[in-house]
């Protein structure tokens, strides 16, 4: 593993990602916001709790919508990062093997303010296991709601699936155009990767754990 995560995080955190006079933050080929974690946590969790209370039969569908948003985020944000000039300058010189793309993108994720992601296991093309000691989603739940009976890190689930789909269902290394058709092709086709959150701090676990494998 040739990726120096500390160097990647240091480089990314030195980029002045601040809105210009149009109020836009162009970076990694995208327009970013530096958003309020509380806004997303409360909006998502209140919506999910309402469904749990009044329409429990719709809970899986509701969660799927939030996870889909996470997958879109991964597709465009992680994909955009891996195609960006910033990636070319900061990460590409450290890449020695295909697996380093996974380590590299997790290093960049660790500069986004999402809590500390740690790669626990990678079986290329088959399985990814990631742990997050302090995911912002779990922190948002713990701060406002009682212990949960189900995992709550929807963005992270979509993000983990996204890393595998970008690298092993599609091939971001070939610099494909990131468009809705390609998203459908690599995220919603036989063999696409899905993530399961097998432990979550909102359920009393010590950290959140995510296992990503192919759908059958």
């Amino acid at each position: 593993m040739a990726i120096d995560e500390n160097a990647v995080v240091a480089a990314c955190s030195h980029l002045p990602l601040i809105g210009n006079e149009d109020g836009l933050i162009p970076a990694f080929g995208l327009y970013l916001t530096r958003h309020y974690a509380d806004f997303y946590n409360r909006s998502s969790f209140e919506a999910v709790r309402q469904v749990e209370q009044y329409r429990p039969e719709a809970i899986l569908q509701t969660e799927a919508g939030l996870i889909e948003a996470g997958m879109l985020c991964a597709f465009y944000t992680f994909g955009g990062i891996m195609l960006s000039q910033e990636w070319e300058a900061v990460v590409t010189p450290m890449i020695e093997s295909d697996d380093d793309w996974v380590y590299g993108v997790i290093a960049v994720v660790n500069s986004l303010g999402w809590g500390k992601w740690r790669l626990e296991q990678l079986i290329p093309g088959e399985r990814l296991e990631i742990s997050i000691a302090n995911s912002y989603e779990s922190a948002g739940w713990i701060g406002h709601y009682p212990r949960s009976q189900r995992p709550r890190c929807y963005l992270a689930q979509g993000g983990c699936a996204g890393i595998m789909n970008l690298l092993y269902q599609g091939d971001i290394r070939q610099a494909p155009a990131l468009n809705p058709d390609y998203f459908q092709e690599i995220f919603h086709s036989p063999g696409s990767f899905r993530c399961q959150e097998i432990a979550c701090r909102t359920m009393g676990d010590d950290m959140c754990r995510f296992v990503t494998t192919r759908t059958l």
Binding site: L17, L30, Y31, L32, T33, R34, H35, Y36, A37, D38, Y40, L72, C73, F75, Y76, T77, G80, L112, G113, W114, Y136, A139
Partner: peptide, 8 residues
């Protein structure tokens, strides 16, 4: 707590 997110 502030988190980066894109418009997608």
């Amino acid at each position: 707590n502030m988190v980066f997110h894109c418009h997608y």
